[in-house]
């Protein structure tokens, strides 16, 4: 039997013959539904086109240079990075706090479920709910007035504060997912390690620093990569703030919102600018790839094993 599976053996040859037919359907599907449309998108980013039935024309790098020299686009780019970094940082802090507290908390499972709940709700619904809360006559300002804190009342959805409110909404919506993710790694750490550390006098923060953090670094890396992808794509929640009656103000625009404005031509059915939209898509993919590589590099180290 062993001989037949060695290279050149009859079974090995038969298996090799099966590889291609088995792999072909998946390869074809990947090619037709991902590779070809993606390449089409890259090609489109060097042209000007408004959709089926309209003329396509080559513009070379004009879409890219136009975007990169547009103050508004650069502001949206910075908004996106800011949102990804700041919200990412807050999510990390929440996840870290959860790893310290929830591991030993009595109602840990319940708290995890409660925190996870907002992640299950549609971002559109979250955006709508948050924006109604922060309306000038909404719950937040009303509560501030009732509790005698009316000097803290603010126009939360105005241009000066809307981006901060959006970031708060994103944190509320996404935190549960990342808490559940990292806690699944914490649950895999043998309790004996914490027990020994406790006996030797290590406090909760030391246990976190010397046990939890090193043994969950892989999962933290995955979480960072997932957040980089999600953060760069932030879109629905912002649109929910504005609805379909207007376009988001520059202060609240992200790359995905800029892309949406170009795909739809704006609020009142303007001509789509699919070339620029595709160029934004290419840039977003490139930024996401860079962020993922960076997060993986930061996390790079030898695998720890305790089994």
């Amino acid at each position: 039997m062993a001989a037949s599976t060695t290279p050149g053996g009859a079974l090995h040859v038969a298996r090799r013959r099966l590889y291609l037919p088995m792999l072909l359907p998946a390869l074809l599907a990947y090619l037709v539904f991902f590779v070809v449309p993606s390449l089409f998108g890259v090609v489109l980013s060097f042209g000007e086109w408004s959709g089926l039935g309209t003329e396509f024309s080559w513009v070379g790098l004009a879409n890219y240079t136009g975007l990169l020299t547009s103050e508004l686009f650069v502001a949206s780019f910075l908004n996106t990075l800011l949102l990804t970094v700041i919200v990412g940082g807050v999510l990390f802090l929440i996840a870290a706090a959860s790893m310290v507290v929830l591991r030993t908390a009595r109602a840990g499972a319940f708290i995890r479920s409660a925190i996870f709940l907002p992640f299950m709700i549609s971002p559109i619904a979250v955006g709508l709910a948050v924006s109604f809360l922060f309306n000038p006559e909404g719950v937040i300002n009303t509560a501030l007035e009732v509790t005698g804190l009316s000097e803290l009342r603010r126009p939360w959805l105005g241009p000066d504060l809307i981006f901060q409110v959006i970031m708060a909404g994103v944190v509320w919506s996404a935190a549960g997912f990342y808490v559940v993710l990292v806690m699944s790694a914490v649950d895999g750490i043998p309790p004996s390690l914490f027990e020994v550390a406790r006996i030797e006098g290590a406090g909760p923060l030391q246990q976190f620093r010397y046990i939890t953090l090193p043994l969950t670094r892989d999962m933290l890396g995955i979480a960072a990569a997932l957040w980089a992808i999600a953060g760069i794509k932030t879109f629905e929640l912002i649109i929910a703030f504005v609805g379909t009656a207007g376009t988001p103000p520059p202060e609240a625009r992200t790359l995905a919102v800029e892309q949406y404005l170009r795909v739809t031509g704006g609020r009142v059915g303007g001509l789509a600018q699919l070339g620029e939209a595709a160029a934004i898509g290419v840039l977003m993919t490139a930024i996401t790839a860079v962020l993922i590589v960076l997060s993986r590099r930061i996390q790079r180290r030898d695998r720890l094993e305790w089994a």
């Binding site: 539904f33 991902f34 070809v36 449309p37 993606s38 089409f40 998108g41 489109l44 959709g51 794509k233 995905a256 892309q259 795909v263 699919l274 939209a277 595709a278 934004i280 898509g281 290419v282 977003m284 993919t285 996401t288």
Partner: peptide, 9 residues
């Protein structure tokens, strides 16, 4: 990012 592109393609 690729949604519009995939649809168009």
């Amino acid at each position: 990012t690729w949604t519009a592109v995939v649809v168009a393609g």
